[in-house]
């Protein structure tokens, strides 16, 4: 990789700053351990009755987002560095669309369900 990454250029997504092999392996090990910990916590929380039950969905979503962050940083090597600006901006736009699609759909459909009168009041009964 060292012969292809030129000084003054951006970093390709997935590429790291110049490190020796040991440091790079260590990065993956840290990412794997963190990801396994977060996964184990998710599965534990989903099945336990030790915590307040209504908090479980929120906790699961927070853990999932945290784990996605761990994957992005340690496996995909997305950083906040100046050589990563393009990658981060593309990611930010992707996330914007994802939140618009998922959030907008859930929001609109939940309200449609709530505002809809029962079916037999809309459709006239056949004679």
């Amino acid at each position: 990789m060292s012969d292809q990454a030129h000084i003054g250029h951006d970093l390709a997504p997935g590429d790291e700053e110049q490190h020796d092999v040991g440091t790079r392996i260590l990065g993956y090990v840290v990412g794997l351990v963190l990801a396994l910990l977060l996964t184990a916590t998710s599965f534990f929380i989903a099945g336990t009755d030790l915590v307040w039950q209504p908090s479980i969905p929120v906790a699961l979503i927070v853990l999932a987002i945290a784990q996605m962050g761990v994957h992005l940083v340690f496996f995909l090597h997305i950083t906040t560095g100046p050589d990563n600006t393009n990658n981060v901006l593309a990611l930010a736009f992707g996330l914007l669309v994802v939140f618009l699609v998922v959030g907008g759909t859930v929001w609109i459909m939940a309200h449609l369900n709530a505002n809809m009168p029962p079916m037999d009041q809309i459709m006239p009964k056949p004679m």
Partner: peptide
């Protein structure tokens, strides 16, 4: 360099793939 152009283009494709998955997630929800 070509390595950056290629990887960046593929990164944009992956993000569009994730957007497609978000539609399936929305439908599931």
């Amino acid at each position: 360099p070509k390595r950056i152009v290629t990887a960046y283009g593929f990164w944009v494709f992956l993000l569009s793939d994730i957007v497609m998955f978000s539609c399936f997630f929305a439908a599931y929800a």
